[in-house]
Write a protein that binds this DNA or RNA. Structure first.
Lengths: 201, 201
DNA sequence: CATGTTCCCTAACAATTGTTAGACAAATAT
DNA sequence: ATATTTGTCTAACAATTGTTAGGGAACATG
């Protein structure tokens, strides 16, 4: 087991799994070490501190999420397509790394004050990406003129909740999940009075 | 400060506030005691253990949420009215006690195994209440025939997210928040092709 | 006045926490 | 073969954790 390449990456992944299961505070360095069949002291040849582990995970995921929304906003689509793409990317990121995503979504609260401020800026930046799409849709007159903040918060809370119930061996693929959520968010729950034009790519 | 009535209730409220801010594990008995201008040992004349505090808060809130949805489902309305009432009750419960609600929503993970199982049953019971409403709406043909589980999870994640940004001194009342969310969930984001019939009470 | 109850205190405990120092073995480079 | 780097170990540290024991002041009740 020792001497494998990317020992640091293994620590990060093990830590993410335990942080997700028990929370950052409740998962001890000894827990992480034991899960790797190692002593706690050995971890410190690869990482500086427990807090560093949390910071690396949080900021690495933040980068990925931001890159995903930036990509969507760069390529020109209409607002509906953009929103569907943004949701799809988000679902993919979450389902492809549930453990690290969970840390990004929930455990950032435990970041030390300085890192926390920096993190919140990035998080805000990501939310702004969605905000921009919704506002665009309203301006283009293809979205109802709803309060954008409400829409964005509803959208993000819906997609983030996926991480609580998604199991990689389930019946639905990330693409199908994204389509369902997008349909629901775009179409709403109430029955329409005319045939829904649906989504034309 | 001592000798006031309901000392136990004060402990529960103080604990809930700290549990919400820092998480159950990170908030120590000494933190709670200090916040009350008391020594940690003094807490044990009112409560049995730290875990008991968590249990009381979680189960008390669970009871209130279940009572709220049961009431809605008892009184006969059509499905849309039921859903709006359920969302309104939920928003009211959250905004009227943000601290305890936050513990109910997030900190239950730290419950000891036995209590945790019991808790999950109650939580499921609450979700079933919403599930029933959505299924009713589909049967009555006033909701689109969407996967009910998806709708319920989207609805609940949206309303639960309120707790992250709601401030009692904000511009929106709980009633207005509930109406906005209900409209969004029922109506969806995409522009309709005919005049929206809206909500007729 | 005496008695009991309520509430809080100081002091201490055993356990667990993140972390460091220093040694030893294996692999790699010279 | 020798030297160096890499990865782990044992042992220990200071701090913090939840909790208990025992005592004392304030108060109400008899």
């Amino acid at each position: 087991m020792p001497n494998t390449p990317n020992r640091k990456a293994q620590i990060l992944q093990t830590a993410a799994t335990l942080f997700r299961e028990r929370g950052y505070q409740a998962a001890s360095m000894r827990d992480i070490a034991t899960a790797m069949h190692i002593e706690a002291a050995s971890l410190y040849h690869h990482i500086k501190s427990k807090e560093e582990i949390l910071e690396i995970i949080c900021f690495d995921m933040a980068e990925q999420f931001i890159a995903a929304i930036a990509e969507v906003n760069d390529i020109y689509f209409n607002a509906e397509e953009k929103l569907r793409m943004a949701i799809l990317n988000h679902v993919k990121l979450i389902t492809q790394n549930q453990e690290r995503s969970a840390v990004f979504l929930h455990e950032w609260r435990s970041l030390p004050a300085a890192a926390l401020n920096e993190f919140l800026v990035l998080r805000n930046q990501y939310e702004s990406g969605f905000n921009q799409i919704v506002k665009e849709g309203i301006e283009e007159d293809i979205f109802d003129s709803i309060e954008p903040k409400f829409a964005v918060l509803s959208i993000l809370s819906s997609v983030n909740w996926i991480n609580e119930w998604y199991k990689p061996d389930g019946k639905m693929s990330p693409g199908e999940i994204a389509k369902n959520i997008s349909d629901f968010i775009l179409g709403g729950l109430r029955k329409k009075l005319v045939t829904d034009p649906g989504y034309q790519p």
